[in-house]
Amino acid sequence: MTGPSVLLVEDNPRNLKLARDVLEHAGFAVTAVGTGEEALPAALAARPDVILMDLQLPGIDGHAALGRLRADPETAGIPVVAVSAFAMQADRDRAMVAGFDGYLMKPISVRDFPAQVREHIRAVGGAP
């Protein structure tokens, strides 16, 4: 039984490791990249059920990476959830208006995280 697949876009190695370990433990198949530029090629290759995107990234930021994903018909339908340490309501609003499907704030809750991610897959109907 293969679980849902997720693509992590996260530049901080520790936070990447945490998210990967927690999601893999919850049965997700995890692919990860460390920059916004790598997000589109990785999404095209892995076709994940959901993409978790850090907003502050080296090179192009999460918003720009989202734009590229949405611009490509192959990836436009994949739900993208922002996972950010930006704590202001304005940051959340900006992300939602920009077209992110959800906004999870760091620090994540380890207990709830897998469910929060799974919710976005279900919401779009892409998961079993």
Binding site: N12, R14, N15, V22, H25, A85, P107, I108, V110
Partner: peptide
């Protein structure tokens, strides 16, 4: 933002 980023790992791994 800068403090939240490492705290994410501290709190997260402790919870794990």
């Amino acid at each position: 933002h800068e403090l939240r980023t490492p705290l994410n790992a501290v709190i997260g791994f402790s919870e794990v």
